[in-house]
Amino acid sequence: MDKDMNKLIAYFKYLGFRFDTSDFDSRFNVQKIVFILKSMGIDVSYEFRLWKHGPYCTLLADDYYKYNTHSSDSDYIISEDEKKILNGFSKIMDMDQKLLESVSTIILLDLVYSSVEVVIKKIKEIKSHLSDIEIIDGQNKAKELLFKGEFLTEELRNQIMEWEQID
């Protein structure tokens, strides 16, 4: 089995679900999740481009059809750094398909830190079926996923604590 496929099966198992590509919805989810994990720092060789439903990689599709992956068999050992990334992703795994599409497209188009107005306008141009709230939620989730803890200075930490105490 291909090295990347072996890794992905191990990652999905670690996250608590099977690497299933038996139907459109499953393949859709695999494409978006692999893209997001790669954006978060997981090392896979797949290159993604914008497609009808967001980021898509033909090589990834070729691989999962080739290996007909419906199992959770993998001998790949996940590193501690990879576990940190997977754990960060697992906190927001409850995303539905529209949110997965929104998050992954925003990341692919490098709109994560653009103004909300710009993000809504650009995403609506290519994905008119997504609502404004799905796009805003997607941008917020993308920020959460890509946030690097080392950028959290003591000053920012204090500001966040002050905001949380306003309730």
Score class of each variant (00 low, 15 high):
52 K>W: 10
8 L>F: 10
40 M>T: 15
91 K>D: 09
91 K>G: 08
9 I>F: 07
49 R>F: 13
140 N>Y: 09
22 S>I: 04
91 K>L: 14
81 D>N: 12
53 H>L: 15
98 K>S: 02
98 K>A: 08
109 L>C: 06
128 S>R: 14
6 N>S: 08
21 T>F: 03
30 V>L: 07
40 M>G: 08
18 R>L: 04
79 S>R: 02
13 K>A: 05
85 I>M: 03
165 Q>G: 07
79 S>F: 03
114 S>Q: 11
135 I>Y: 09
150 E>G: 03
158 N>I: 01
37 L>D: 12
33 I>T: 14
37 L>V: 08
48 F>Y: 15
133 I>W: 01
107 I>M: 14
84 K>W: 07
25 D>C: 00
7 K>H: 01
59 L>T: 05
47 E>H: 10
116 V>P: 03
25 D>L: 12
40 M>K: 04
109 L>Y: 14
53 H>D: 13
100 L>K: 13
74 S>E: 09
71 S>D: 10
110 D>S: 08
70 H>Y: 10
111 L>S: 00
48 F>A: 00
96 D>I: 00
94 D>C: 01
36 I>K: 10
91 K>T: 12
155 E>L: 11
92 I>A: 00
64 Y>R: 05
124 K>M: 05
90 S>K: 15
87 N>A: 03
46 Y>H: 01
156 L>T: 07
73 D>Q: 15
76 Y>L: 03
93 M>V: 03
25 D>Q: 09
48 F>L: 07
101 E>P: 08
124 K>V: 02
78 I>P: 04
17 F>W: 05
63 D>I: 06
140 N>S: 09
157 R>D: 06
85 I>P: 12
21 T>D: 05
37 L>T: 11
77 I>Q: 15
97 Q>T: 00
18 R>K: 13
45 S>Y: 08
116 V>G: 01
109 L>V: 01
112 V>N: 06
78 I>A: 11
102 S>Q: 06
9 I>L: 01
28 F>Q: 11
102 S>E: 11
78 I>W: 08
132 D>N: 15
55 P>D: 02
52 K>N: 07
28 F>D: 09
70 H>A: 04
112 V>W: 12
108 L>E: 06
95 M>D: 02
106 I>D: 04
143 K>Q: 15
108 L>D: 03
26 S>N: 13
165 Q>Y: 07
14 Y>L: 07
121 K>V: 02
101 E>Y: 11
12 F>A: 01
164 E>Q: 12
74 S>Q: 12
47 E>N: 09
147 F>H: 07
102 S>F: 14
61 A>H: 13
144 E>L: 05
82 E>F: 05
154 E>S: 13
67 Y>W: 14
137 D>Q: 03
158 N>T: 01
81 D>P: 02
11 Y>V: 02
4 D>V: 02
156 L>Q: 15
150 E>Q: 07
107 I>A: 10
92 I>K: 04
24 F>G: 04
68 N>D: 12
122 K>E: 15
47 E>L: 06
38 K>M: 02
135 I>T: 11
4 D>T: 04
46 Y>C: 01
16 G>D: 00
107 I>K: 14
73 D>V: 14
136 I>F: 10
110 D>A: 08
82 E>H: 15
17 F>G: 03
55 P>S: 00
92 I>R: 06
47 E>D: 09
68 N>M: 03
54 G>D: 12
81 D>T: 04
34 V>S: 13
56 Y>R: 00
76 Y>N: 11
57 C>H: 13
80 E>R: 08
147 F>L: 11
90 S>P: 10
142 A>C: 04
